[in-house]
Design a protein around this nucleic acid. Structure first.
Lengths: 242, 242
DNA sequence: AACGTATAGATGTCTAGACATGTACTTCTA
DNA sequence: TAGAAGTACATGTCTAGACATCTATACGTT
């Protein structure tokens, strides 16, 4: 179970062992894991080494410790998790218990406008894919979304690949791992045209969300501007301690 | 510097000492902090105790360690940090390069309304402090803020303590460490009364932000509802990888 | 000048204990 | 029967070391 001769530190092997127990559903949310003493006996390592493994998992939110009681698998549910992380529209709607839908209004390869080129750190003459979609939740229009993606990063992008999940295509097919996104949220009121698409009265308040996603290497990979109906959509986010 | 008789653990005292060095700009971004050995000599504690303090700050992103070289203050710049973390109005405005101001409209100890009691996990008959403030940025009204704090958690709260920094009072004076906050952001339009306070036209769009802060022990400690002028304020957030 | 070795000093991993504190339960006592 | 005391066991804090590994530098040797 634990290889003392391995160059992989023992505390890390124990970490992986615990995570694997959770992954394989041998331990479920809220379950108590073996005590430090039990791990000490099981793996023949000192208590401090067990603690190092367990504390790492506590810091990353996988486990929760309660003094005098024990250590438990975090029941940080999916909705909490989705508040913390980077998700596309579909994942967002699913975590809210709604059925996501999408209608592509246009898909084109165009020269990047100055503002877009600036945000995506491109030269003026570089191309981007521009994807305009109306987004639905439970078959009602929820948002208007316009995405820009540098053509040189994802040269073979087609309309078909966008539909299932743009994020998964970029991450898995292209092997470009996401790192984080910076999002800005403003309030505004709809124009007549937007009101028509979203099926809401003229002058209704809307949430204007702009998101720029970055890869692990620091390069921006996607800029998305979204207009959400304010009567149906509330943006939620969980902020860790400052 | 370090009080061995204090019930506050030594590793935590060391944590606060290091954070204070950074706060007071004695240590700047990228600076190397004293080595574990030096702290051991300075505070007469064992190396493992120093490590516990330092590793906590590494896990929370304040410090970065490089094997064989040393431990350094994270150069995650302020604006990045403020996007990721939990900040009060004043910190938020300062990180935007504006001068924060505040006018207290009311400060009272009242019975919690049902909605507030629910969010703060209180009984119906529990008291809360209600703090209503108009917030200014560069001497112009920017937001209307109403905060609720359970009276039993902070029984001795007075108007004077709120003014400099409510967060610091709770965290340092009361010894109640924050863990995270959950924030929801909606768009709406102002009422006549609100428009007057914020000095904007009737029917202007506003950002309605509700924040509930939680302590390390999981208990909610603060509920704040804010109305921000949409023409001046944009909410920004950094989302780590999903 | 280029390369390899030695060394100092930093963090990384690990041990085998100690006592403190909180929780749950049992047992004793008034 | 209610409350106090005890006890088992959990995590929390802390020690004084050990050896490993990595970085940077100094110093020889070729």
């Amino acid at each position: 179970m634990i290889d003392r001769k391995s160059p992989v530190p023992m505390y890390y092997q124990i970490e992986q062992y615990i995570e694997q127990l959770i992954e394989s559903r041998n331990l479920k949310s809220g379950d108590q894991i073996p005590s430090e003493r039990e791990f000490t006996d099981q793996f023949h390592v000192s208590r401090m080494t067990v603690r190092q493994a367990v504390m790492n998992l506590v810091h990353s939110g996988v486990l929760v410790r309660i003094k005098g009681k024990g250590t438990f698998v975090s029941n940080q549910n999916k909705i909490e998790k989705s508040l913390l992380g980077l998700n596309g529209f579909s994942e967002d709607m699913i975590s809210r218990g709604m059925k996501p839908g999408s209608f592509m209004m246009s898909f084109a390869r165009i020269r990047a406008a100055a503002k877009v080129a600036d945000r995506l750190a491109l030269d003026e003459h570089d191309d981007v894919f521009e994807i305009k979609r109306t987004r639905f939740a439970d078959d009602e229009p929820m948002a208007i979304e316009t995405s820009y993606i540098p053509a040189k990063m994802v040269p073979d992008l087609t309309e078909d690949q966008v539909s299932p999940s743009l994020y998964q295509y970029i991450e898995r097919q292209c092997g470009l791992p996401f790192d984080h996104a910076v999002q800005s949220i403003e309030a505004s009121v709809v124009t007549a045209e937007e009101a028509k698409i979203l099926a809401i009265p003229k002058g209704s308040p809307i949430l204007l969300i702009e998101r720029c996603s970055y890869l692990k290497n620091g390069r921006p990979i996607e800029l998305t501007k979204s207009l959400f109906r304010a009567d149906r959509y509330k943006f939620m986010v969980k902020l860790p301690r400052g």
